[in-house]
C-alpha cells in the first residue's frame, strides 16, 4: 500500500468513527438544547403578543 492509500484509508476511518461519535454526542444533547431554545422563543412571542406595536415600528 503506497503513501496515498495509507492517507486515504486513514481519512475514511477517521471520517466514519468520528461521525459515529458526533452523531451520539449531538443527538443526546441537542434535544435538551432545543427545549431551552423553545422556552426562550416563547418569551419573545409573549412579548410580541403583549406589545404588537413593536412589530409595526418601521426601522
Amino acid at each position: 500500500m503506497n503513501g496515498w492509500m495509507i492517507l486515504w484509508t486513514a481519512t475514511l476511518v477517521v471520517g466514519v468513527v468520528g461521525f459515529i461519535g458526533l452523531l451520539l454526542t449531538v443527538s443526546l444533547g441537542a434535544f435538551g438544547e432545543l427545549r431551552l431554545m423553545l422556552e426562550e422563543l416563547r418569551e419573545d412571542t409573549r412579548e410580541s403578543a403583549e406589545h404588537p406595536e413593536v412589530l409595526d415600528e418601521a426601522t
Partner: peptide, 17 residues
Amino acid sequence: GNLSDYLLAGRTLRIRL
C-alpha cells in the same frame, strides 16, 4: 415572535443544536 426569531431563531442556538 419577531424578525430575529424568524431569521436567526432569536440567536438562541447552543453548541450541540
